[in-house]
Amino acid sequence: MRLRLDTLFGRLFGVLLLAIVLAHLLAFAWFFYYGPPPPPGPPPEFSRQGEGPPRFNPPPQHTPRPWFGGPVVPLTFQFVCLIVAAWYGAKLLTRPIQRLSDAAERLSENLDSPPLEETGPREARQAAHTFNLMQQRIREQVQQRSRMLGAVSHDLRTPLSRLKLRLEQIDDIKLQGQMRQDLNDMIGMLDATLTYLHEQRTSEALQWMDVQALVESLSENAQDQGADVQASGGCAPLQVQPMALRSCINNLMDNALRYAGHALIALEDKRDQVVIRVIDHGPGIAADKREAVFEPFYRLEGSRNRNSGGVGLGMTIAREAAERLGGQLSLEETPGGGLTAVIRLPRT
């Protein structure tokens, strides 16, 4: 296997090999310079010269080694070298992953974010190149869908408008009314579908917003149109996507007005989140059906059907808007009967 230094494996292997070689070279040089401790000398000797008294010959004297001449210093240096190499190797491994993660987060917020730089080891360059290709293809698909939506909107609205004009030529009043109702349903479904697809491709930047003022404004606008909508509670400003939050609350409020004839929007400010409740006392939804209503075009039988308005996209749009805000949308039973939609938005 040929070792390539432009790969992540080659760089990591080279760093660790260099650290090990340097640590061992220092250890060898250190022990060579100070050498092993001297062997013990011969035992003391007594000698006689002539008839004089015996003379003591002391062993040769050796200069003692300094305290740092032992294995402590080279072993410590080896330990430090390996720690530094392991730290640098971990940085080499995690840096490309962190760059890819940051780019993916930017892409989730904005499809037009700048492409990822194709630099670094070969594996990192390959991952960055693949990521940039994916971003380009996603952008092309979104643009293609936008063009398709424009074409669908134009091509369907035109014949529907002509049909509405030709209805006036029908003498049968009953048949005319039925056909007008069917055309209105088709136009409503077309508008709801286009709105849903538009909401999916919309990308907004986060900004600070007075949620309490938004809720009060929506309530007052509904009251001006003769709807029974009340607002209560309060909260501090929150960092949100304004259009997404407005769309979420609007759809929940319209849902409550459609099926109950009234709505109460209650705010609750907590330390780590803001809770928005849209409360009604209408027919409610059975517990086993509450998740199903978030599916596109899903409609319940009975009071919550097409005859009472809607095409089954309002709750879908509301949940997806809440998720784009990093929050959650769930449905609960209102005490005393009815439905409560609960939006939980985190404080970041």
Rank of each mutant, 00 (worst) to 15 (best):
G120R: 06
V311P: 01
Q178R: 13
V240D: 01
L252W: 00
F32K: 05
T202M: 09
G327L: 05
D254C: 07
A192T: 11
V275F: 04
A292R: 11
E105F: 12
H62P: 01
R139E: 03
L16Y: 13
T334D: 10
E109N: 10
L194H: 10
G89R: 03
L26S: 01
A222C: 08
F13M: 13
R2C: 00
N307Y: 05
G14N: 08
Q61S: 09
A227W: 03
G188W: 00
P121V: 03
A19Q: 08
E117R: 02
Q223C: 02
I343F: 15
Q225A: 08
D191M: 08
F56C: 00
Q135L: 01
G89H: 01
A318C: 11
I276P: 01
A244D: 09
Q141C: 10
T340V: 13
S161L: 13
E295Y: 00
E168I: 07
A85Y: 15
V21C: 06
E216M: 14
L3G: 06
R319G: 04
K174R: 14
S303M: 10
G284W: 02
D6S: 14
I173E: 15
G314T: 10
M209S: 06
R4H: 15
P58H: 10
T119E: 11
L218K: 05
F297L: 13
